[in-house]
Amino acid sequence: MRVMVVDDEDIERKGLKMILERELTNIVVNDEARNGRLAIQIAKTFQPHIIFMDIKMPGMNGLETIEEIRKDSPHVKFVILTAFDTLGVTKKTSTEGVMDYILKPYSKDELIETFDRLVVK
């Protein structure tokens, strides 16, 4: 399974990648992106199955990025990473086909449980 991590903060990307690779088998976190534009380019080549996407990034935000990636890759499952627990975010993510969202800061267990739910769906 190919997994991609998109977050503008290096420490968030590296930490998430480390947790996923350490705790899960049969996945490849081949790529990560620091912004939406780069994520779109990488997704076209890498063709990930799951993308963990930060919602608040400079320039193109996570929801805009998801919308663009969906045009070429409707099969991709998205998990939003956000520090914002608002109803508007929840409603918007459900209309964009986002499978789940995780509030920052998240625990390793929460991350693994979310991943496991996605694999089952």
Rank of each mutant, 00 (worst) to 15 (best):
54 D>R: 05
52 F>G: 11
67 E>G: 06
97 G>L: 06
71 K>I: 11
93 T>K: 10
51 I>K: 03
46 F>Y: 15
57 M>T: 10
60 M>P: 02
90 T>I: 14
69 I>P: 07
107 S>Q: 10
77 K>T: 08
55 I>D: 02
106 Y>W: 11
77 K>W: 04
89 V>K: 09
86 T>I: 08
93 T>V: 10
67 E>T: 14
96 E>R: 12
61 N>C: 01
64 E>I: 04
75 H>L: 07
69 I>W: 05
54 D>H: 05
89 V>T: 14
102 I>E: 14
102 I>N: 03
102 I>K: 01
72 D>N: 15
56 K>Q: 06
55 I>H: 02
90 T>Q: 13
85 D>E: 13
81 L>Q: 13
54 D>A: 00
101 Y>D: 12
62 G>S: 03
43 A>M: 03
89 V>W: 05
93 T>R: 12
82 T>H: 08
93 T>P: 00
68 E>W: 02
62 G>L: 07
49 H>I: 10
97 G>W: 00
101 Y>C: 06
68 E>P: 01
47 Q>E: 14
105 P>D: 11
74 P>I: 13
68 E>R: 12
50 I>A: 05
104 K>A: 09
85 D>I: 05
64 E>Q: 15
98 V>T: 12
97 G>F: 00
101 Y>P: 05
97 G>Q: 02
71 K>C: 00
101 Y>N: 08
80 I>M: 15
100 D>S: 15
103 L>E: 05
66 I>V: 14
79 V>T: 13
89 V>P: 03
71 K>W: 07
51 I>P: 06
63 L>A: 03
89 V>H: 07
100 D>T: 07
47 Q>W: 04
80 I>G: 03
95 T>G: 02
64 E>T: 09
107 S>T: 15
100 D>A: 15
45 T>L: 04
65 T>R: 10
107 S>A: 06
51 I>Y: 05
64 E>N: 06
53 M>I: 10
58 P>M: 03
82 T>G: 11
86 T>R: 12
60 M>E: 05
86 T>F: 13
76 V>R: 09
46 F>Q: 15
79 V>A: 09
70 R>L: 01
69 I>R: 02
83 A>Q: 03
85 D>H: 02
90 T>P: 07
74 P>R: 01
56 K>T: 04
75 H>N: 14
66 I>T: 11
